[in-house]
């Protein structure tokens, strides 16, 4: 008798548990991600930029015959957009990186573009991977997603074919992690959150790779789940294994963690006032919204204070005040 009650109960409990894991958590995480990120960006936006403080990394626009650096020191909005594009798409500033080294008792500066390369490789391959995942969320699969997948798996290695972006992302993440562990200086500045973010990303990538090339997963089931999530008609399909579950939970953790960690640099990079402003402070008036009057030492006060000395030195006094 008890068994008759217990079995369906347990089954439904298991079903509910699975529902929470496969549906509840992703929804919550994504909501936190979107809400949190918006909250962060709005928070930044609410603080004004009182002064125009671009870091100028090249010649200013001044006399017409002097060649200016329109992208490293833009004087127009368009130039600033260009500068931001270089920054966001190609990591311009990191590209400048060099290493100070002592030789013959003097500093010499050598190239150091590994970080730039690693960061570029990581971010771009991550973007490619994210876009490729659209094949699971959209039905029918957009042509550009299919095309990306095709190019990404151009080299026929294994079945399914190896995605180059997967290799790149793993190598780049490994590099980013190892440099933190290897380099004493970076180990010194690294905090828990630095490792946490890297490990989450690495874990997510590894489980993803494992599903594709190792343990396998029923892609159709995964896609049904994904479409269900995307269209608010969640289904809990059978056949998604434990690896997928870990993958999903890690992604959820990453999404939920995102707004509250350094990962918000994704949004922040666009708002950096040392980069996204045109260096036109002397060309155009810029208003500080909270500019308030301050106590100054006015000319009248000053003249009053130094009247004798001004007279003695025959420096002309202000006629308006001079009686």
């Amino acid at each position: 008798m008890a068994a008759l009650v217990a079995v369906p109960l347990l089954a439904s409990a298991a079903g509910v548990g699975k529902g929470i894991l496969l549906v509840g958590i992703p929804y919550a995480a994504f909501a936190i991600f979107l809400g949190g990120l918006c909250w962060r960006v709005v928070g930044w936006a609410r603080s004004p930029v009182p002064f125009r403080i671009p870091t100028t990394c090249g010649q200013q626009t001044s006399l017409p015959w002097i060649k200016s650096a329109p992208l490293d020191n833009p004087s127009t909005g368009l130039g600033a957009v260009g500068r931001m594009a270089l920054e966001v798409l190609l990591f311009r500033s990191l590209f400048r990186n060099n290493r100070a080294e002592i030789y013959d008792q003097r500093y010499v500066f050598g190239d150091s573009k590994w970080l730039w390369l690693g960061a570029l490789a990581f971010h771009w391959s991550l973007l490619v991977i994210l876009l490729r995942h659209l094949r699971l969320f959209v039905q029918p699969v957009p042509a550009f997603v299919l095309f990306m997948g095709k190019v990404d798996s151009f080299f026929q290695i294994g079945a399914p074919a190896l995605y180059l972006s997967n290799v790149v992302v793993l190598c780049a993440l490994a590099y980013l992690l190892l440099r933190r562990l290897w380099d004493l200086r970076l180990r010194y500045i690294s905090q828990f959150s630095d490792y946490f973010a890297l490990l989450l990303l690495l874990g997510t990538a590894l489980t993803g790779v494992l599903m594709r090339y190792g343990t396998r997963v029923d892609v159709v089931a995964v896609k049904r789940l994904a479409i269900g999530l995307a269209t608010f008609q969640p289904v809990v399909p059978d056949g998604v294994g434990i690896v997928f579950l870990i993958h999903l939970l890690m992604v959820s953790a990453l999404a939920a963690y995102f707004p509250f960690s350094k990962l918000v640099h994704m949004g922040g990079v666009f708002l950096s006032p040392t980069r996204n402003l045109a260096n036109n402070s002397r060309m155009k008036r810029h208003v500080n919204p909270w500019n308030y009057p301050v106590k100054t030492h006015t000319y009248a006060e000053w003249e009053e204070e130094f009247r004798d000395k001004l007279l003695m030195a025959e420096i002309p006094l202000d006629e308006a005040k001079h009686d």
Binding site: V138, R224, I227, T231
Partner: peptide
Amino acid sequence: FPVWKGVAAQSST
């Protein structure tokens, strides 16, 4: 994108 695209296309699960 997947959400509104899915809703618009009335994707089924």
